[in-house]
Design a protein around this nucleic acid. Structure first.
Lengths: 145, 145
DNA sequence: TTAGGTATTGAGAATGATAATCATTATCAA
DNA sequence: TTGATAATGATTATCATTCTCAATACCTAA
């Protein structure tokens, strides 16, 4: 964990952007819960539980910075708030499975869309730089038998 | 246009849900601009331009109802507001091309994801009921030469 | 036709997520 | 240490959306 933070610090921070103690704490919480998609408020709450008080404004600003530095990606699951996930470098493309019953979000690896992106560029003259794919439905647990 | 409204009325409204004059006006504006993805505020503004005053709350309520009746689909393009499009019955699946420069949203037909849905159901036990695909990038006009 | 009930509407207040402001504090180089 | 710059926190502002509640419109049974 500490190692991961160091890696990120080396890679994304410089003399201009510093990994301050607060930012480090926020990053640590995100890494600790990297199986989830936390919102700003989630992070605020998790830190409070640990007895750490960091202003909500700072959390918003930090998340914004992390997105700018490409450490995080902002994602939306239509629950009215933004959520964040660590940028995946290895498995570049992954999609989300959003359960309409319990709200759980799982991830699926896939690279099927490259072909489609080529078609779009050729046919529509549209230069694709990113994409998002979300599947809505019912997860194994919630799925009616 | 009038025909289309009548069709929708026959198909989706009943003794319980009525297509009131206000709702009809809202529906007409949406059909008239079916090449766009209007927000509640957009609709409010378009009606005002025509000298028609319908309360914003009514527009929100009507849109909600239309979504419930499956006349509209709610879509999000990360500009902080919800937008709506007429439910397409013919070309069931279509994706959106969101231009990061001018904000224009184009549509692409495609049915490539059926295969992927099958895989997901088999592999993850996740019953897919819907999906959304968005491509971000630069449209023909904005694209750097 | 009328009375009563239900659904619809409008205006404005309330909410909730996020952004902006501004005074205070920390950091770091000279 | 000083001075400049960045970071932080508390609070307020903003903006989309929802809620509330009183006023209407509409429909049905008598």
């Amino acid at each position: 964990m500490e190692k991961k933070i160091d890696q990120i610090e080396k890679k994304h921070f410089s003399s201009h952007y510093k990994l301050t103690p607060h930012r480090k704490i926020i990053l640590a919480v995100i890494i600790e819960h990297s199986d989830q998609h936390l919102s700003a408020e989630d992070i605020y709450g998790l830190l409070r539980e640990k007895g750490i008080e960091i202003g909500l404004a700072t959390i918003y600003r930090t998340l914004e910075l992390f997105v700018e530095l490409n450490i995080l990606h902002k994602v939306h699951f239509d629950d009215g708030r933004s959520r964040y996930e660590l940028t995946h470098h290895e498995r570049h493309r992954h999609h989300h499975l959003v359960c309409l019953s319990c709200g759980d979000v799982a991830e699926v690896e896939d690279d099927l869309l490259n072909k489609l992106e080529e078609i779009i560029e050729r046919k529509h003259g549209f230069k694709v730089t990113d994409h998002t794919v979300k599947f809505y439905g019912y997860c194994k647990r919630c799925r009616p038998k």
